Each structure stands twice: as structure tokens, then as C-alpha cells.
Simulated assay, not measured.
Amino acid sequence: MFDGFETRRIATSGAEIHLRIGGDGPPLILLHGYPQTHLIWHRIAPALAERFTVVCPDLRGCGDSSKPPGGGDHSAYSKRALARDVVEVMETLGFVRFAAAGHDRGGRVLHRLALDHPQRLIRAAVLDIAPTRAMYQATDQAFATAYFHWFFLIQPYDLPERMIGADPDGWLQTCLDRWGRTPGAFDPEAVAEYKRCFREPAAIHATCEDYRAAATIDLEHDAADENRLVECPLLALWGGQGLVGRTYDVPALWRVAAERVEGGPLPGGHFLPEEAPEETLAALSGFFGSGAS
């Protein structure tokens, strides 16, 4: 799935990150979301590697990366901690400045990275998300129904862990089926790998900690930075048939959070790199290719 890519494992100050790297050119890191791994990029990373040095990590707590304890305040899975992993991984690889794309939870990591480390980012693309704080502030019955998993996964340890752990394959498949809108979009090999990784109890716990952090310490960080904007050019893409585009005015919310925003909807639902790989590739190639400084 990643022909020509090298597999690496890099120790950061808080985790060990499993990744693939391939290609030659300006550095570009691709961050995955829940409940997947770096394999979500398998249909577009090889093509991007024709123009960029592409880095595809498993986020801390996911895939074959390490899964440290969350801590009493869930800070080990704050987007600040995960963003620090990204910076340290790229530094180890020799990249001080880089471009980045993040889908789902990876997009939330990227938003925090843009605020904490603005000098690092050349350009950033967020896929199928709106800013976390704005979404929580607008919570109503429709949001809570559509995004029920946000409120399920933040329940105290170990209620969601036990419930998901009873049938991890079933839960993961439900997420793909519920949020995707494109029949046949998921490669069976990729799904089998998602399930292999997600069956690990430590992965289930770590991903719950990610959501618990999002509802607590991440909101504290976001509130402290409410008057700060993403400085680099930002591309916002979302699924035209997905939940976020039907629930929010995505570009309007990102214009409040960033200085320069462009983008629009793509076909399909939530999982753009798998549901609309050609359109996602074209959008990312055009955006990242238009600025290399």
C-alpha cells in the first residue's frame, strides 16, 4: 500500500511514533483520525510522494505507536502533546518547517500545532472538521445525536473501554459505516489493519483519553488562545454528504480561527482520503504546491 516508503520508529519526549516516509521534495506530514491509523492515506500518499517528502505517522495511542498513560488530567493525549510529537518527529527527520494535512482528530492536532508552533507550518489543511471549541459551544440536541460518540467516549474510565472492548471490531466497523457515505470506499486490507490495531486494549483506552482531553484540557488551551489565529494559509475540506458540512458553516467557523482560509466540499462523507481520493489528492496537491516557502 505504501510502495517505496520506509518504515521508521522515532522516540519523542512523550511517546514512540511509528511512521512511514517516502518521496523527495518539500516535507509534508499527513495526520490521521479516529478510529484509524496512517493507512487512511494509502490511496493518495504515494502520489503526493512524487512531489513531496511525505511522512505518515500513527498518532500517539494509535496504530503501532506507543500508548502512554493519559494522566489524571488526560494531558498525555492533549492536542498540545500530540502536536509536540509531530514537531519532534519532523525535527528528527531534519525538517524544521513543513506543510501538514490532518483528517478528523489529526486535524485537531494540526490546529493546536498551528497555534503552539506557528513558525513550523508553511501551509495546513484540515479535513472534515470544524474547530473543537466552536462545536462544543454550539452543542444542541441535533449535535449530540449526530456526534453521540463525543459524549460516550468522554465518560469516566472505564465505562467506554469496557463497552467497546466487548466488540472492538464491531465498534470500528460501525464508525466506518455510520460516518462514511461511499459504498466500497474502504479497502479490505486497510480495514483489517484498522481492526488489528484497535483490538489492543491500550489503543481503546488511549483513544478514549484523546476524547476526554478534547472535552477538558484542550478546551482550556483553546480558551486561553481564543484571540489567536492560525497564521499560515489554511485549506478546509469536508464531505459534501457528511455530518460536519450539514451541521455547520465550516468555512465561516474557520475564518474566525484563521487569517487566510480557502476550500470547500468534496464528494462523499467523512473519510475523504478513502471516499474521494482523486478529489482529495487534487485539492491537496494544488494547495501545497502553490506555496513552498
Rank of each mutant, 00 (worst) to 15 (best):
A11F: 12
T12S: 06
H18Y: 11
L19R: 04
G25I: 10
P27H: 03
L28N: 01
H38I: 04
A45N: 02
L48A: 01
E50R: 11
T53Y: 10
C56K: 06
C56I: 15
P57R: 12
P57I: 14
G63K: 07
K67E: 03
K67T: 06
K67P: 04
H74N: 13
E88Y: 12
F98G: 04
G107K: 08
H111M: 15
Q119N: 14
L121S: 08
A125G: 08
L127N: 04
A138E: 13
A138C: 09
A142M: 09
F143Y: 14
A144P: 07
A146I: 14
F148S: 05
F148P: 00
I154Y: 00
L159D: 01
P160T: 00
M163W: 01
I164Q: 01
L172N: 00
T174P: 00
C175Y: 00
R178T: 12
G180W: 04
A185T: 05
F186R: 00
E193K: 02
E193V: 04
K195Q: 06
H205F: 08
A206S: 11
A206C: 06
A213E: 03
D222T: 09
D222N: 08
E231Y: 08
L237M: 12
W238H: 12
G239D: 13
G239K: 12
V244F: 15
A257H: 13
R260P: 08
P267R: 01
G269C: 06
F271P: 05
E275N: 06
F287T: 13
G289C: 08
